[in-house]
């Protein structure tokens, strides 16, 4: 069988792919920062001395991190309404991705937190800082520097997870690509272009994270 490449049909629908990519980015831009906040709070729970904080944080990470994200996406969209929580497609997906990334990032942040020497906290206490001031001025900035390299790849991974929104018909990049695929039958071309858009976006994201890493690097 011979298949001759013809991108014309895909280029005609390229706007649609770009719109899809814009929505993918939109989903990520809302969900991942929310996930960072959830992850940060959970990470402090995970390293807390208090069992009352440690146990729920651990349970959250265990349950969410060990469930496939597709299952979570389907659960929030199809099962939650049965439980009386009715959300739109986009809201439901953003919420799911935020909760999912929270569990992943909590583990990343926990690793960064335990790598901060206890002497840093003690030095903060000794000059009269409160625990909260120590967290915001010392512990979190040092933790972030510890985790930046792995944070970059987690971010990329989470961005790519936006493609699972296609499963509940959120018109992001993968969903639009599938539509074009079905309408034009240009199977290979459509998925090559869609892949290229993902690769380009992720490369940009990686470059951005490396720039942040360089900017925050501690001079020595």
């Amino acid at each position: 069988m011979t298949y001759s490449l013809n991108f014309a049909a895909v280029w005609r629908s390229f706007d649609l792919l770009l719109q899809g990519l814009a929505l993918s980015l939109g989903l990520a831009i809302v969900a991942i920062p929310a996930g960072c906040l959830i992850g940060l709070i959970t990470a402090f729970g995970l390293v807390s001395k208090s069992v009352l904080l440690r146990k729920p944080a651990g349970l959250y990470v265990t349950v969410i991190r060990n469930t496939p994200i597709l299952v979570l996406v389907l659960f929030s969209y199809f099962a939650l309404p049965e439980l009386g929580v009715r959300l739109g497609k986009i809201e439901s997906f953003v919420l799911t991705l935020a909760i999912y990334s929270g569990a992943y990032l909590a583990e990343v942040f926990r690793g960064g937190l335990i790598a901060v020497p206890p002497g840093q906290r003690e030095a903060g206490l000794a000059i009269g800082l409160t625990e909260m001031q120590i967290r915001t001025s010392i512990i979190i900035p040092l933790m972030l520097r510890n985790v930046l390299p792995s944070l970059g790849s987690t971010m990329i991974s989470l961005f790519k997870d936006t493609s699972l929104a296609a499963a509940i018909a959120v018109p992001e990049l993968t969903f639009e690509a599938r539509k074009i695929n079905v309408e034009t039958f240009r199977v290979i071309e459509t998925w090559i272009v869609a892949s290229c858009l993902y690769v380009a976006t992720c490369s940009l994201l990686a470059a951005l994270m490396r720039a942040v890493e360089r900017r925050l690097a501690v001079p020595r």
């Binding site: 002497g119 030095a123 000794a126 000059i127 009269g128 040092l142 520097r145």
Partner: peptide
């Protein structure tokens, strides 16, 4: 209360064996 203890800690200054400067 922690806030009171933090205030009291500022009555003293401490230098540590490992310096514990904030590296960032």
């Amino acid at each position: 209360p922690e806030r009171e203890i933090a205030r009291q800690r500022a009555l003293t200054g401490m230098a540590f064996q490992q310096f514990n400067l904030f590296p960032h």
